[in-house]
Amino acid sequence: MQIKAVAFDTGGTVLDWHSGVRDAFAAIGRSHGVERDWGAIANQYRRLAMRSIVGQCQPSFNMDDVHFRVLNEIFESYGLQAFSNEDQRRIAQAWHKLSAWGDFADPLREIRSLYPVVSFTMLPLSLVVDVSRLNGISWDAVISCEAIGYYKPDPRAYLQASKWLGIEPSEILMVACHNFDLNAARACGFQTAFVRRPNEWGCEPPPDPIPNPDCDFALDNFEGLFTAVRSQVEPTSL
């Protein structure tokens, strides 16, 4: 099994979106003297946003637009009429300030010493640039579905990423904590690695915690991913 590049899903797999978004809601709630179950609200917000972007073909909007627009429904559903347009903007901007999972940065540097590493994501380019700079993450490239025009799990997204990298799908290892992403990548010929993120949804268990047995690797953390990837390197290239 030959690997020539490693592609990472970014929202959820690399970034702790739940904590960042929950805390943004909580901070604004405190400023208005409003108490809610902010973790549950953050999760519903995420669900609605994902429903609005997954599988989109040539949309006139990106994930930033969705993150802003969906808040109208969240505010109405949870009785948050006290939240202003500026509050809405601040919550949407919280996505650009997310922290990466603590086990990611060091293994990524180690993996990058062996292979090119790319963020392959439904998130907008500007968001990935912001969070990467904030967390000290260096990619060889960022491939956003925003630029491709087709959003995962549309096969055209995976095949275009492979074309842009100039690498056969079978030579790319796709890394994610979501089976829908990995199943679609594998159907396009990619190798796949499921990395568990049990705390992705914070106060709730992840909706998709069990890796498809067809994955090439199923791992508990990114250090395990580095070990698995390193095992595939030809001895003469180490």
Rank of each mutant, 00 (worst) to 15 (best):
L108M: 11
R196M: 12
E234N: 09
H178F: 05
V34W: 06
W17R: 07
L165S: 05
G20P: 13
L80H: 05
D64H: 10
I28D: 07
L165M: 14
V21G: 09
G149S: 05
V131A: 02
I28W: 10
A5S: 08
A161Q: 02
C145Q: 03
S231I: 00
F120D: 02
N62G: 08
S84A: 06
Q56E: 07
N72A: 14
A184F: 04
R46E: 03
Y151R: 08
G29N: 07
W164N: 07
G102A: 14
G33A: 10
A40F: 04
D16F: 07
F8R: 00
A82N: 13
S119G: 10
R196T: 10
R46L: 07
H18P: 01
R69F: 11
E73S: 14
C57N: 09
N212Y: 04
G224P: 02
D103T: 02
R36C: 12
D214E: 14
S113V: 05
V195P: 03
F222T: 01
G79P: 00
A185Q: 03
V118G: 04
S99T: 06
A24E: 11
A49K: 00
R36G: 09
C145Y: 02
P107T: 13
L80S: 04
N221M: 06
G11A: 09
L238N: 14
L159Q: 11
D9V: 02
V129D: 12
R186D: 00
I3S: 02
K152D: 01
G79Q: 06
S31Y: 03
V175Y: 02
I143V: 03
V128E: 02
N212K: 06
G12F: 09
A141G: 11
A185V: 02
P198Q: 04
I28A: 06
S60Q: 14
P124T: 09
N199K: 13
R112Y: 01
W139A: 08
L159V: 05
V117H: 08
F194D: 05
Y158Q: 01
S84D: 06
L173V: 02
E86V: 04
P124E: 13
V21F: 11
Q232A: 08
A24H: 14
G11F: 04
E223A: 15
F75S: 06
V54F: 12
D140F: 10
N62H: 09
A27Q: 15
C203H: 07
V195K: 08
Q93T: 08
S31H: 11
A27R: 15
D216Y: 03
L114M: 14
V175L: 08
A228L: 10
V175H: 04
Q2D: 05
G39S: 11
S99M: 06
A42T: 10
S132E: 10
E168H: 07
G55S: 01
N62D: 14
G29S: 04
G11W: 02
D130Q: 13
L48I: 00
V131H: 04
R109Y: 14
Y158F: 09
V229G: 09
G136V: 13
G39A: 11
A176W: 01
N179Y: 01
C188E: 05
R133P: 00
N199L: 13
L125K: 15
